Amino acid sequence: MPTSDAVLDPAVAARLTRDAAGLVAAVVQQHDTGEVLMLGWMDDEALRRTLTEGRVTFWSRSRQEYWRKGDTSGHAQFVRSVALDCDGDALLVRVEQVGAACHTGDRTCFEAGDLGAVVGAGA
């Protein structure tokens, strides 16, 4: 993975629990509705860019390169907040989504079909 002169804040980096590839899952959510839009992956550099540039950047596992959501599609994600879960292995990125979040053109990446799970009764 490429590196740059800028680095992720060491205090933030120390809180991350990365997978074997050095990545952390990033759940992207529409900030005002709570709608879950997509899941992407970030390494330290992608997270640094996301925290400091105001736009969401991911590490593409398939292309092995950084990609900033919307640079080619126009469907940008503007950062509203970023939170780390209690284990340090997942990020919640709240955004203002412009256009579709999914590469298929759907609003979210979770519109591909319900798997038919049994609905629990709840407490």
Rank of each mutant, 00 (worst) to 15 (best):
A13V: 04
A20F: 00
F58Y: 15
A46H: 05
L16S: 01
A101W: 02
E96C: 05
F110K: 03
D44S: 07
W67N: 13
T33R: 10
M38L: 12
G116Y: 01
P2L: 13
D19V: 00
R48C: 04
R18V: 15
P2I: 13
A25Y: 10
A121E: 15
Q97K: 09
V79E: 12
Q30L: 08
G122R: 10
E96S: 15
T57D: 08
V118E: 15
M38T: 10
C102N: 02
E111A: 15
S60Q: 02
R18H: 13
G88N: 00
Q97T: 09
L16Q: 06
H103N: 00
F58H: 10
R61M: 02
A46S: 13
Q30H: 14
D5R: 06
D87I: 06
E96N: 12
S81K: 09
L51C: 07
D5K: 05
V27F: 13
A101F: 04
A123K: 11
R107Y: 10
A100Y: 04
V56N: 03
A90M: 11
M1P: 15
L8D: 06
E111C: 06
V95E: 03
V79M: 06
R80K: 15
A21S: 14
A25V: 14
V118R: 08
T52D: 13
L37K: 09
R48P: 04
L23E: 05
R49L: 12
V36E: 05
A11N: 09
A101G: 14
V98Q: 11
W59Y: 15
G40Y: 05
V12G: 03
C86R: 08
V28H: 04
E53D: 11
Q77C: 00
T108P: 00
D5W: 05
D19K: 02
L16R: 06
T108N: 06
S81H: 06
L37E: 12
V12S: 05
V79I: 11
D71M: 02
R68V: 15
V27C: 10
S60P: 04
G122F: 04
A117I: 12
V28G: 04
S4C: 08
A121Y: 10
V7L: 11
E35D: 14
R80H: 14
V24H: 10
E53C: 03
R48S: 01
V7A: 13
R48N: 10
D106Y: 00
D44L: 02
E45V: 11
E111T: 12
A101C: 07
R68S: 14
V56R: 04
D43H: 08
V95F: 07
A46Y: 07
P10Y: 03
F78K: 12
G70I: 06
W67A: 12
G88K: 05
G116M: 01
D71L: 04
A21P: 02
V98I: 14
E45I: 11
F110A: 11
G120Q: 13
D114C: 08
A11C: 00
R18N: 11
W59N: 11
G34E: 11
S60F: 01
Q97N: 07
A11L: 12
G34K: 01
R61S: 03
E35W: 00
V79K: 03
T17F: 00
